[in-house]
């Protein structure tokens, strides 16, 4: 009887030993702000495919587009974000984000190679929509600076995914794979536009 009592106590103690602090309001401070900002672009599939398409198109176009687009994008996105923060509305933000996937995906799929300034203008125009969507969330963030840093870095890393994939374009089979990737992104964009996805 005594042994069973001891075993029960021991089991209870072991279970308690696995307890950790309850974090009802985890999203606070610098860490909370950064993590919520970092996850914002990653958890939205429309953002993800459009950002990958930017990197993919940059890699497809080669130098200097491969680095101009990822440098220009965050800066123009900040402008869109500022409009969102200040409550200045932009019509059809979600449609613009979905359209960015369609247009950028199609550019890659059809191997369109415009001059660098045209590519920068197209990407920059769509960056305003993406920035506006992120910026609208900024005032409610736990730490606005950490939030903005989080979503800017996440966006840059998504570009990097596209660039990394786009680098296979130097091989003939890789070029087909990249164009197919662009086609899939464009189709997904159509899905977002029509509400199917």
């Amino acid at each position: 009887m005594k042994a069973r009592h001891f075993q029960s106590l021991a089991m209870a103690a072991i279970i308690i030993a696995y307890a950790s602090a309850a974090s009802a309001h985890e999203g606070v401070g610098i860490t909370g702000g950064f993590s919520s900002g970092f996850m914002h672009p990653i958890l939205g599939w429309d953002h993800v495919i459009a950002m990958v398409a930017v990197g993919l198109w940059g890699a497809f176009l080669g130098s200097p587009a491969i680095w101009v687009l990822p440098v220009v994008f965050p800066l123009v996105m900040a402008f869109g974000g500022a409009l969102g923060v200040m409550g200045i509305p932009i019509p059809a933000v979600e449609t613009g984000i979905a359209a960015s996937a369609v247009v950028l995906g199609a550019m890659v799929a059809f191997a369109v190679r415009p001059p660098i300034w045209v590519a920068a203008v197209i990407v920059g125009a769509f960056a305003i929509f993406h920035g506006h969507a992120h910026g609208t969330e900024l005032p409610s963030a736990a730490n606005p600076l950490a939030y903005s840093l989080g979503f800017v870095i996440a966006t840059g890393l998504l570009h990097l995914c596209g660039i990394a994939f786009g680098l296979v374009v130097r091989w003939p089979a890789g070029k087909i794979a990249v164009q197919a990737g662009g086609g899939i992104i464009a189709l997904a964009g159509v899905g977002f536009l029509t509400g199917i996805v």
């Binding site: 680095w67 994008f73 800066l75 900040a78 402008f79 900024l138 903005s148 800017v152 840059g156």
Partner: peptide, 20 residues
């Protein structure tokens, strides 16, 4: 240079928030 654009973008956004 990309890190530079990230720093500028984040700072500009928070400045916009402060202004608003």
């Amino acid at each position: 240079r990309v890190i530079g654009s990230w720093v500028a973008a984040s700072s500009l956004l928070v400045l916009a928030l402060s202004y608003s």
